[in-house]
């Protein structure tokens, strides 16, 4: 019920009703990435789409699937001849706005203690 209401009223959770309908009618499931996002293509392999696992966040698509999604390659990352580059690091979705967001040193959201800079004044201290 909750899932149905979400599909009906909002767009940022997994999928909308129309995408669900289309996936059911035309979709062919080609694979799932390590985050649980499911990738689909239509019967003619013309259109490609993704149904996210949880929040709809484009940066959650890892590089291999990103290439396939954007038609740069037809090789699926779950195929045997897919070769990731050796310098590729584990993919992390853009954490902006989440708890894992990056805060520079001295930011109030980190420790609030910044290093001394040249514009600082030197306070007088007794003794």
């Amino acid at each position: 019920m909750k899932q149905f209401l979400a599909e009906l009223f909002i767009w940022w959770h997994k999928q909308t009703l129309s995408i669900g309908l289309r996936t059911w009618l035309k979709g062919r499931h080609v694979g799932t990435d390590e985050f649980g996002n499911k990738y689909y293509t239509d019967k003619k392999n013309k259109k490609r789409w993704v149904v996210y696992d949880g929040i709809v966040e484009a940066s959650a698509i890892p590089p291999g699937w990103h290439g396939w999604m954007h038609y740069r390659t037809d090789i699926l990352p779950n195929e045997e001849n897919y070769q990731p580059h050796k310098w590729e690091k584990p993919h992390i979705a853009n954490p902006t706005g989440t708890r894992n967001a990056y805060h520079p040193k001295g930011s109030l959201l980190r420790d609030g203690k910044r290093a001394k800079i040249s514009a600082d004044y030197e306070a007088w201290k007794p003794e």
């Binding site: 600082d120 004044y121 030197e122 306070a123 007088w124 007794p126």
Partner: peptide, 18 residues
């Protein structure tokens, strides 16, 4: 000199110390 030895908060002498 405007950046050094600045008094930036009130001090009160308690005992012998500020």
């Amino acid at each position: 000199g405007l950046k050094r030895q600045r008094l930036d908060r009130p001090y009160v002498r308690k005992g012998k110390k500020l």
